[in-house]
Nucleic acid binder design. Sequence first.
DNA 1: TATTGACTTGGACTTGGTCCATCGTAGGAT
DNA 2: ATCCTACGATGGACCAAGTCCAAGTCAATA
Lengths: 138, 138
Amino acid sequence: MSDLLERLRGRGWRVTAQRRVVAEVLDGDHIHLTADEVLERATARLPEISRATVYNTLGELVTLGEVVEVTTDGRAKRYDPNAHRPHQHLVCSGCGIIRDVHPAGDPLADLPDAERFGFDVSAAEVTYRGLCPDCARG
Amino acid sequence: MSDLLERLRGRGWRVTAQRRVVAEVLDGDHIHLTADEVLERATARLPEISRATVYNTLGELVTLGEVVEVTTDGRAKRYDPNAHRPHQHLVCSGCGIIRDVHPAGDPLADLPDAERFGFDVSAAEVTYRGLCPDCARG
DNA sequence: TATTGACTTGGACTTGGTCCATCGTAGGAT
DNA sequence: ATCCTACGATGGACCAAGTCCAAGTCAATA
């Protein structure tokens, strides 16, 4: 995400302290924070930032394709900054930790024509579930 | 779902008018109702039924493995009575309609060991996305 | 360095869901 | 057939996640 702000500036984004902080908080690998977690970490760096701004900024990053929304549990959405390399998710059924994974082959190819109901199918999201090493031991 | 109530009675379930109505409402193919939609349809048949009871009953049916929860949009959970035949979901990005689909092969097999991070992986959920015939025309 | 339209704020509001004290009733016992 | 009682239903308060909006602020351009 390092050159993200420059990319966004080039697209006409006004760079504010709030947006910078949200982008910084999302930087890293295997990052899948909820909006509230982003707010919490952003507040540590910029105490005046508001909840609405965090939601606004996350929504904009999603619209611009810089971040993808992930829903693994029907509760809060999570925000994944690894938007430029296609991948799927592996979720621990015990503690909920999420890893980015790269399955072999194209999951789309597994859906026969007869199973497409006339849809123009364009994407496949896969969520693998299981126990992480820590939870399997417990 | 026709013999569902008998199966549940066998498991010690007390069969009430409310539970019967919820089970009836869920009967059918490609049914993926939200809790509120279940409540709405149940109310049409049994006006006194309460929201809490619908949630309780849906939760019990999920625990018993008779219904599966589906989250395709990060909003309301949906309840799928087709729990005994493994399948995946195809969701229209336009109108949100959901079809049950059966991909070829086992999606689990596509995840290489090197991508498992030591997890004991036990399941894979796939959500295919695209436009349904109606939305593609529009 | 002045201007201004885009951005931020906080609080009210909405939606989806859970909890709980109280009341009602299915189904076994008599 | 009726009685009992533990299990189930009720509705209203509560909670969590997210959206909306009117008013105030400020980044970037001139």
